[in-house]
């Protein structure tokens, strides 16, 4: 029997705004399956986003949804989680939203290790505003504001998250749709700040400028570059050139922020 996505979709809010061939919808389906698999309650789940095509995702979900300002999702979500630690809090947003304007909030959410899951839909471009380069756009690529090729180096978002202190970091792709829900579910179940980067495609503003003739070509590219961490262990540096690792990249147990603050409350009350 086909999976019933409807039970988590907000009635009357489809069709979505995404272009045909956009990978964001694939990630949303993965997120729905993950929420379902983890048994989260809709009214007890907050889905928080910034601004961008990816950030429109929460509006379609039948939960407590908060579409904040550009880049601010992690900081708003921190307030929600602190105020309501019993809620499950999931963040969704684009590479630009999360690592450019929202970069500061992102690294500090990682550092605090507050129990939330951040799904970054990395299409390497600012889709919503028409294809300007983002901190994830590879050097040399074309964007509407890098007509002669991008002079900037790109962030490795997963590495950035690990470096900043996130305690669960995974990467998947929109091509490997069946893996997305498993990665997100594991991230949700992890206690601490978890980051799932999904390599995604934007045919409209990135693909057409960078010699991808079709969505299928973009998807095949994601398939070609992805190497599961386990498989990578047996590969030489030569073989790994131009590839990206997928799967769970990092996992660590460290004190969680809301629990740490609960101890602050205990100490303050003991001293009273």
């Amino acid at each position: 029997m086909a999976y019933d996505y409807e039970k988590f979709i907000r009635p009357g809010k489809l069709p979505h705004i995404w272009c045909p061939g956009c990978g964001h919808g694939i990630v949303m389906k993965g997120l729905i399956r993950a929420i379902d698999a983890c048994g989260l309650k809709k009214e007890n789940t907050a889905i928080v986003s910034g601004i961008g095509c990816a950030s429109r995702l929460p509006g379609y979900m039948d939960c407590c949804t908060l579409h904040t300002a550009h880049g601010r999702a992690a900081a708003f979500a921190t307030g929600v989680k602190m105020s309501r630690p019993e809620m499950d809090v999931i963040l969704v947003g684009g590479d630009g939203d999360g690592t450019a304007i929202g970069g500061n909030h992102f690294i500090h959410a990682c550092r605090r290790n507050i129990n939330m899951t951040y799904i970054i839909l990395n299409n390497k471009i600012y889709g919503m505003t028409g294809g300007q380069f983002s901190p994830a756009t590879p050097t040399g690529d074309k964007a509407s504001t890098t007509p002669y090729g991008n002079p900037d180096p790109a962030f490795d978002i997963a590495k950035l998250a690990i470096g900043a202190g996130a305690t669960f970091v995974a990467r998947g792709t929109a091509f490997h749709a069946n893996q997305i829900d498993k990665l997100i579910a594991e991230a949700i179940q992890h206690k601490g700040f978890s980051v799932v980067e999904i390599l995604d495609d934007c045919p409209t503003t990135y693909g057409r400028r960078n010699k991808f003739k079709s969505v299928i070509e973009m998807m095949n590219h994601l398939k070609d570059i992805a190497v599961p961490v386990k498989a990578a262990e047996k590969m030489s540096p030569e073989q790994l050139k131009g590839k990206v690792l997928t799967g769970v990249l990092y996992k660590e147990d460290k004190p969680e922020y809301c629990e740490q603050y609960a101890k602050v409350i205990e100490r303050a009350q003991a001293a009273k």
Binding site: V48, L66, T68, A69, R72, A75, F76, A77, T78, G79, V80, K81, M82, S83, R84, M87, N104, H105, H108, Y261, V264, I265, R267, A268, Q269, K272
Partner: peptide
Amino acid sequence: LPKIGGKFIQMEDEIGAMAALLGGALGGA
């Protein structure tokens, strides 16, 4: 605040502080 079970958080900047404030307020505080 912790004495009465409330929450205090020092954020990474004032934008983050204002965002967390609104998030906390939406949580009912």
